[in-house]
Design a protein around this nucleic acid. Structure first.
Lengths: 211, 211, 211, 211
DNA sequence: GATGAATGAGCGTTCATTCAT
DNA sequence: GATGAATGAACGCTCATTCAT
C-alpha cells in the first residue's frame, strides 16, 4: 500500500524533515481542504518559500499521497493485528473501534483529510489504493457483523449494509471534532461510542456477563 | 434566516429559473465540492456560458448562500413543527431523525454541501447564520437529551455532549451515501438508524411497550 | 495531417481572430524560439493579458501545433500539385524548390519555427506528424533524385543521401535570413539557388537546351 | 576573442575538469537547446548536484560563453591558416569547406550550438564577439568569391550575397545531422559537398584540368 | 437573457543561483 | 570540491467576474 517501501519517490530529504513538513501540510490540508490549500500557505507555515517545498516533494499531490498512504499503512497495521488476534465478534468490534480512535488521536489531520478528500480522489489512478482500502474495510466490517449475527452476538434483524455504514461513519466523523489532548482519552471516547453503538442510548436490563 | 426574504439580491430573474439553476448548482457543488466547482461547469450543465449565470446571480458565493439558506429554512420548518408537537423525548428524537432523513431524501445535494462546506464557511460573516443554526441545533439536541435523561427515557450514564455529536453526525453523514429512489424509503432508513441508536446493535430482552 | 479538419479543437473564436493571433504568435516564436517565448509576450504583442489568450487557445503548445499543421498542410498542397504534374526530374526539382521559396515568402515565421523546433518535438506524440512529414519529404526527394540519376538528368556519381540532405537544408535555411518584401522575389531567389545547385558555382560550357 | 585569455572567470578549477564539464555541457546544450537545458541536467550527467557546478563556473551563461569562444578560436585558427597559404579562389574554397567539416567532426556539439543559439545571442553585449565573427566570416567569403569571379574561377553571373549565404549555410547545417564516426570521413563529406557546390548536381562535360 | 471577449489575481511549478557546512 | 537546503523571479495556466453588444 505504501509505495515508498518499494519505490522511494524523492528521498532527497532526511526522513525527519519530510515527516515534519508532511505533518504540517496534513494539518493545513485538513483545516482548509486540499484544493483550497495553497502550496504557498504550507510553505508560509513552514517558514519557507513556496518553491522550496519542491526540494522535498515532487508536487502538492505527492504530499497528499504520502500523507494518505502513511495513514492507511498505519491504520491497517492496527486492524490486521486485531484481526489476527482471533477474538469474538463483539470483542473484535470493540478493538477495531478503539484502534480507530487511537488512530484519530495520533493522526487526526490525516484521518480528517482522508474523510474529506477520498470521494474526490476516487477516480484518480494515483489514488486507486483508496478504493482498494475501502473495499478491504467493507469486507472486514461485513465479515465481523455477519459472524456476530450468526453467533447471536449481534441482533439478527439488522440490515447489514446499513449497519456497516452506520459503524463506519460513526467512528470516522469523530475526526472532525476530536482534538488530541482534550479531557477524554481515545480509549474513553471509544468506550462511550461503543456503549452507544452496542447497547443503544435507551436503558436496558443488565445482561448476563459474557464468558 | 433566508436573506432573500428581506434583501432580494438579483430579482431580475423568475424565481422558477433561479430554483432550477440553484438545484443544478447544488448538485455540482455537492459532487465536486464548492471550491473545485467552476462556475463554467455549472453553466455548461445549464446549457449556457459562464458569464450568463451572472444575470441570475451576483456571484458564485451567492449561489452557495442561497442553497444553504434554502436548506436551513426548510429543515428548521420541519424541526420547529416537531418541537411544537410537545412529544416525549424518545418520540421527539424519533421524529427529528425521521424528518432529517426526509430532508436528505428531498434535498440531498444541499445537505451534503452543508456537511462538507460548513467548517470552511464558519468565520465568514456572510455565513454567520451557519454558526447560529449550529447553536440552535446543539441546544435542541442537548435539550431533548437532557429531558430524556431526566425522565429515564435515555440512559443516565451518557456523556451528553458525546451523545449529541454521535446523534448529529450519525444522521447527517448518511447524506454522503444516500441516493433518492433506492430500495429503502427515508422512513425505513430512519427506522433502522433509530433502532440502532436507541437499542444498540446487540440483542436486548423485550422491553415493556411504552404507553 | 491537419487535425482541425476532423477534430476542431477549440473553435470558440472567429477564425479571423484566431489566424491573426496565430500569425503573431508564429512571429514571436520564430524570433525567440518556442521555449524562450513567454505567453505573456505574445499577449503583450496582441494587446491583451496572458490569461486572455486562453480564451482562444487551449495552451501554448496548441498554438505551436496549429501553426505547424497549418504550415505543413499548405506546403504539402503545393508539393502534391507539383508531383501530380508529372514533370521530368530536373523540372520537378525546379518546381519543388520554387514552391518552397514561395512558402518561405508567405509563411516565413512558420517555416523558421518548423526548422528550429522540429528536432525537439520529434519524440512528442502530439507532434508525430512532424516525423511523418519528414518521412514523406525524404521519400519525395529521394524519389526524384533517383529518377534523375536514372535518366541522366543528374550526375550518376552522387551520394544520394548526401545530395538529399544538401537539397533539403539548402532550401530551408533560407527562411532564417529571408525577409518578405526585399529586393528579390521568391522566384528570383529560387532561380539563383537552382542555378547554383543544378550547375554549380564554377563556370560550365553551355549545355544543349533541354527539350 | 576568447575572454578567458584576459579575464579568467573562475580559475578555481583545473583546466582539465573544466574542459570535461564543458564538453558535457555542450553536448546537452546542443541536444536540447540552451534555454531548454537545465543546469541540473548537466550536473546529473556529470554526476554531481546542480549547485556544485557553480564551483567551476560563474553561471550557465558563462558555460555557453566558454563553449562558443573555444569553438570560434579553434575555427579561426583553421581559417587563418588557410587564408595565410595564399591559394587560388577555388582551392581556398575547397580548403575552407574541408576545414569546416573537420571542425564539425571534432566539435559537433559546439557547432550545432553556435548555429542554433547565435541568432538569440546577437543583441547581448557579452556575446558581441559572435557578431564580430560573423562579419569576419562574411568578409572572408565575400572576398574569396569576388576574387574567384574576377579570375573566372567562379561564374560571373552569381549574386554574390546569395552565393555567400548559400555557401555559409550549406556547410554548417551539416552539423545538425552529422555524427562523428560514421561511414564517411569529414574529408569525404567535404568532397561530396564541394562537388555539388562547385559543379552542380547535373552532369557537365569534363573540364580541362586546372594548372 | 445570453454571448463573446476580455480582465486580473492567484495558483502550482520550475529553475538559475546562493551559501553554510 | 561537493552537498543540502533554500531563495526569488518568472512561467503556463485557471477562474470568478465584467461588460458592450
Amino acid at each position: 500500500m505504501n509505495e515508498n517501501d518499494t519505490v522511494p519517490t524523492s528521498k532527497k530529504t532526511t526522513p525527519a524533515r519530510r515527516a515534519e513538513l508532511l505533518a504540517l501540510a496534513a494539518e493545513v490540508f485538513a483545516e482548509h481542504g486540499y484544493r483550497a490549500t495553497t502550496v504557498r500557505r504550507i510553505a508560509d507555515e513552514a517558514g519557507m518559500l513556496a518553491g522550496s517545498l519542491y526540494y522535498h516533494f515532487d508536487s502538492k499531490e505527492s504530499m497528499l499521497d504520502e500523507i494518505l498512504t502513511g495513514f492507511l499503512d498505519d491504520l491497517w497495521a492496527r486492524y490486521d493485528a486485531v484481526l489476527a488476534a482471533g477474538l469474538g465478534p463483539r470483542e473484535t468490534v470493540t478493538e477495531l473501534v478503539t484502534e480507530s480512535f487511537r488512530e484519530i488521536d495520533q493522526h487526526r489531520a490525516a484521518v480528517a483529510l482522508y474523510q474529506k478528500e477520498t470521494p474526490h480522489l476516487a477516480g484518480h489512478p494515483r489514488f486507486s489504493y483508496l478504493a482498494d482500502s475501502r473495499r478491504k474495510f467493507e469486507e472486514m466490517w461485513l465479515g465481523v457483523l455477519r459472524r456476530g449475527m450468526a453467533d447471536r452476538s449481534f441482533r439478527a434483524d439488522l440490515d447489514i449494509r446499513l449497519a456497516y455504514r452506520f459503524l463506519r461513519d460513526t467512528v470516522w466523523v469523530a475526526a472532525s471534532w476530536y482534538r488530541p489532548g482534550g479531557t477524554h482519552s481515545p480509549e474513553e471516547i471509544a468506550g462511550q461510542y461503543l456503549s452507544m453503538v452496542l447497547d443503544g442510548i435507551t436503558p436496558r436490563a443488565p445482561r448476563a456477563p459474557r464468558p
